[in-house]
Each structure stands twice: as structure tokens, then as C-alpha cells.
């Protein structure tokens, strides 16, 4: 399985992603610079976290229009798999490869802490490593993670099983208006969503940072193992 990780000026989580994907796939992913114009030969493109272009204008707005994103858009349109984490999720919404947008956290503060996520997505490679309803821990580090979309779009995402993950308590309890549980105030506690063809996934928390026992746990590993298992069968 060949994975490419796109690096923009200001991206800073690409090494974490390299480590997680190397552990899961057994081979090092390719780093793709934002000025490149092709992602040919890849099975999965990952947009990692960071602060691409210094978050100028809006988080992800500048990166969404860089040369590599034309190739990523073409790749996605042809059915390629794309994962965006944190800033990567923001870039995917700005590029309109995923619906909605990510606003400033409702509490105004940059959040850097663990959260818990409930797995909800149906029939996709990104939640394949878990059972529906599973709860797992994931680190989170962002200032603009407050997911929003028009109410009709939120209904559609829920109706089509395209909410991949929701913020929840460690026992799986979900409460949209509780800032201790839905930490950034996201609409309907949404932490991750899927595209219409379920091949593009964006999420704010960082499963890649919990993939090594030496770093505190492997709670995030099912994301990567699930992708590998789905794509290699």
C-alpha cells in the first residue's frame, strides 16, 4: 500500500503521521511537497496537521488552492482515498472536498488535551478498524475545530452515515451543549465526516499520536490498521 503525505509550509504533524503509517503499513510513506502537481501511484493521500501558510485568511484556505490540491482533487474525483487530520480536515473543507467548515472553538481557547470519540461512520475504510459504537481516546490540538454546516447538510450527513466520529465522554455519552464533552462546540458533536463516496475523511483529533505504546497508548491504531486491511484485500 502506497501512502503520500502532503507537506505545506507550516505543516508540523507530518512526522507523527509518517511514524503511525510506517508502523501500520510496514513501509515509509512518501512526503509530497505542496508545489508538486501529481499524486500518481498512491493508494492514499494524507493531509496532516499543522498551520499551513500560518492559518492566514482562514485555517486551510491558502493550502486548499496550492498546486498539489488540484492533483488531490482529481485523485479524489477518480475515487482515490484521502484522509485529512486537523489542519488537513480544514483544508479539505476549504477545498470543498468535504462539506461544512471549521470555526473558532466555541470557548475561544486553543485546546490541547485528550478527547474521546465515538465511532459512527458506516461502510468506509476509515472506521473499518473499529466496531460501530466503539469509543476511543485521541489527542486533540486545535484552535479552529468547531464544525459547522447548514442544518440540511447535518441531517444528510447523519442520515447517510457520513458522520465518522463524534466527541463523547469516556463512557460514550454524547451531550452537544456540554463543553466538557463536546470540547470545541461542534454542531451535533461532530469530530469527523465522510464525503459522499466515503473515500474522503476529515477529522480534527489526532489518532496518529496514539499509535505507539511508548508514547502512551495505541488507541488510534485501528484507524491505520483498518485502512491497511481494507485496501490490501
Amino acid at each position: 500500500m502506497k501512502v503520500g503525505i502532503v507537506v505545506f509550509p507550516g505543516t508540523n504533524r507530518e512526522r507523527d503521521m509518517v511514524q503511525a503509517l510506517t508502523l501500520a503499513t510496514g513501509r515509509a510513506p512518501k512526503l509530497v511537497w505542496h508545489q508538486e502537481e501529481s499524486v500518481t501511484g498512491l493508494d492514499l493521500v494524507v493531509l496532516p496537521g499543522g498551520f499551513s501558510f500560518g492559518d492566514y485568511l482562514r485555517s486551510g484556505a491558502m493550502a486548499a488552492h496550492s498546486p498539489i490540491m488540484t492533483a488531490v482533487r482529481r485523485f479524489a474525483e477518480q475515487g482515490g482515498y484521502v484522509l485529512g487530520v486537523c489542519n488537513g480536515f480544514q483544508i479539505l473543507t476549504e477545498a470543498q472536498l468535504l462539506p461544512g467548515a471549521l470555526l473558532r472553538n466555541a470557548g475561544m481557547r486553543f485546546l490541547s488535551q485528550d478527547c474521546h470519540l465515538k465511532v459512527e461512520g458506516k461502510e468506509n475504510i476509515f472506521t473499518h478498524g473499529w466496531a460501530k459504537g466503539d469509543v476511543f481516546r485521541a489527542p486533540l490540538a486545535h484552535g479552529d475545530g468547531n464544525y459547522t454546516a447548514a442544518p440540511e447538510m447535518l441531517d444528510r450527513l447523519e442520515g447517510e452515515g457520513r458522520v465518522a466520529f463524534r466527541y463523547c465522554r469516556d463512557d460514550g455519552y454524547i451531550q452537544h451543549d456540554d463543553a466538557q464533552i463536546n470540547l470545541n462546540g461542534s454542531a451535533r458533536s461532530i469530530a469527523g465526516v465522510l464525503s459522499e463516496n466515503r473515500r474522503v475523511c476529515g477529522m480534527m483529533p489526532h489518532p496518529e499520536n496514539l499509535t505507539d505504546p511508548a508514547l502512551g497508548g495505541t488507541d488510534g491504531m485501528p484507524l491505520f490498521k483498518g485502512i491497511v486491511e481494507s485496501l490490501s484485500t
Binding site: L57, R58, A61, H65, T93, E94, P99, G100, A101, L103, T148, A149, A150
Partner: peptide
């Protein structure tokens, strides 16, 4: 439309 505003929000 292209860049300066995100019409979703």
C-alpha cells in the same frame, strides 16, 4: 467567491 470569503459560513 474564489478565496476571500468562505460562503459556507
Amino acid at each position: 467567491k474564489a478565496l476571500l470569503a468562505n460562503e459556507v459560513i
